[in-house]
Amino acid sequence: MEESICCVCHQPIETEVKRIGSRSFCDYHYAQATRNRGSVWRAGVVQILGLIGFVLIAELVFLLADLDLSGGSLLIAGLILALVPALLWLAFFYQQDQLEPEPKGAVLGVFALGALLAQAVGIPLIQQVFQVRRWLPIGAWSNILGSILVVGFTQEFLKYVAVRYSIYPTLEFDERVDGVIYGTVAGLGYATVLNINYVVQSGGVNLQAAVIRVVVTALAQASFAGLSGYFLGRAKFEDEPVWWLSSGLTLAAVLNGLFTYLRGELTTTSLSLAGGGFNPWPGLILAAAVAGTTFGLLFFLIRRANRLTLAGADAKGGV
């Protein structure tokens, strides 16, 4: 009889071989791969609501306290703001995921890798090599296409790399939903660096506008990386075609680019003597809608895939 190897732990399977497509699983990893982890989705919902709540509370504090920060104190306040979304997500995730939490080292490693790739490759490539600020605003079509082809693909590829070449081949990546989890973490790492750069380059920021911008960036980067992570999760445990991963990357990049363009259009207002020029609130509504829709869709798709796999196994008598 031919010896079967589990595609996750790469150990010979001594008991009954379970399959998804042509991939063989041991009992333990089959159960893991098809597990629905409600905690992940609860953490996602709490994260979106928590970030919106954070914005509202922060805006209220700024309104009532009349903070007069400048120089170094403003810079430090901005840097703390930049870290809040990632810290909130980690807190919610581990609070929800106490029964069988993902290893903290792996989560922090992917977060750090996403952040490093953003700082070392993403920002220099987009800002210095492609110099997008010079030409994206010139016309609507150049803005949309450039946002997709340069900004979207670069950012999504780097977040994909942070997962694909670190945690993906290891034993820790043993559930379909792990792609979404680690993709989200890589996205938050990327967003944190974008936010820190924004604060530092501005030499301190208008805190009322910054708190919204920081949250919008985090929600968007996490959502699109979660989407490409979903494709990674399916690719590891199922027989997907050769173009599956590149389709996931393309979809995430297109959504990222469209979001970048739409956010710019929605948050730019006409100038008047009373002020204007920039209104960040529509950007927050858009980001919350995108994040809610993306995570809702992924939740549905992963549960459906797990259900179909288990139904298929039952029909074949468990094999």
């Binding site: 492609f130 110099q131 010079r134 030409w135 010139i138 016309g139 150049s142 296409l145 450039g146 997709i148 082809l149 340069v150 693909f153 670069t154 590829f157 994909y160 694909r164 690719a235 997907e240 050769v242 173009w243 599956w244 991963l245 590149s246 990357l249 393309t250 990049a253």
Partner: peptide, 24 residues
């Protein structure tokens, strides 16, 4: 599949570069 991802990225960046040159 891994190579396809890299190929798609390279095509996107090449198109982005052409778009940049045309726009500027």
């Amino acid at each position: 599949a891994d190579w396809a991802v890299i190929l798609v990225l390279l095509i996107a960046l090449a198109l982005g570069f052409v778009l940049r040159q045309r726009t500027l």
